[in-house]
Design a protein around this nucleic acid. Structure first.
Ligand SMILES: [Zn+2]
Ligand SMILES: [Zn+2]
Ligand SMILES: [Zn+2]
Ligand SMILES: [Zn+2]
Lengths: 144, 144
DNA sequence: ATCTTAAATGATAATCATTATCAATTAGGA
DNA sequence: TCCTAATTGATAATGATTATCATTTAAGAT
């Protein structure tokens, strides 16, 4: 997995540095979790104290440009990152207003909306669906 | 319209100040446009040079809390505001990667996604759908 | 209409995520 | 090994937003 990402870096003439590998490893370790730049920085620092926060931001920007990671905001005033899916089409997210947890949702009804727009002459390159509310653990606390 | 918003302020024991009225007026003037706090600040300043940017932020936060305006981010690193719809359920947005224009989309296929989650015990209070791509004016420039 | 007072305001500083700068380091090809 | 452009880390800068606090004001009581 890590190797295949390094191949993409190579293919695009970007150097495979210790820092970039460490960042990719940290993200792999947290697969399925939506990490902030700072989450990644803190984790990498454990085994690599010299790493700079700028390198983390720069690397994530690069990985996003290469379609290795997907950068998205859940309206918290900061961005979160996760690995892209192979198909290039993203799953959706449910954000709990109670505990803040972000839960992935597989269902996809967006084709309808997309084709309606494409008929009107738009080109759709990406979409984002975020649902907000209460997860089963928080719903009782909320309705009490 | 403005009067009905003032009524909501009154009902909730908030004062109806010149600043709050000016901000609501600026937003009414730009109905259908998705304004940033600074857009509103700049506009109100024309006829009300003493207004402070803090007041704009504070007022928007209050109006959002009262469900008068809806605050949303289009991943630009800042928030945009528009009046809530009566139903409490928002339209969707198409963001053009070319010119940055934000176009409203009425179609709503989200019930499906929402009921699927509700069956699993979640409570959905809000959703956000944002599509990205190229609008008809920008698509040729893009595919050239 | 005046008084009272808690709410609201504006100037300013603080915060926080992110980006830019730049001298020093380094990956990877010759 | 050498060369060099890419990369890095420290630091400063930015830009949006929030906090602080002395001053002003809306709106209810007199
Ligand atoms: Zn929860
Ligand atoms: Zn996800
Ligand atoms: Zn466009
Ligand atoms: Zn809208």
């Amino acid at each position: 997995m890590l190797d295949s990402y390094c191949k993409v870096l190579n293919k695009n003439r970007f150097k495979v540095t210790r820092q970039r590998k460490a960042i990719l490893e940290a993200m792999e370790k947290a697969h399925g979790v939506h990490l902030t730049a700072d989450d990644i920085y803190m984790d990498v620092k454990q085994n690599f104290p010299e790493i700079g926060i700028s390198t983390v931001y720069r690397t994530l920007e690069l990985l996003a440009r290469l379609n290795i990671v997907h950068k998205t905001s859940f309206d918290e005033g900061k961005f979160r990152y996760e690995f892209c899916e192979d198909e290039g089409h993203y799953h959706h997210h449910f954000v709990c207003n109670g505990c803040g947890s972000i839960i992935e949702v597989e269902e996809d009804f967006l084709h309808h909306l997309e084709s309606a727009l494409e008929e009107r002459g738009f080109i759709i390159t990406d979409h984002k669906v975020q649902l907000y509310g209460y997860c089963p653990e928080c719903r009782d606390r909320h309705t009490e």
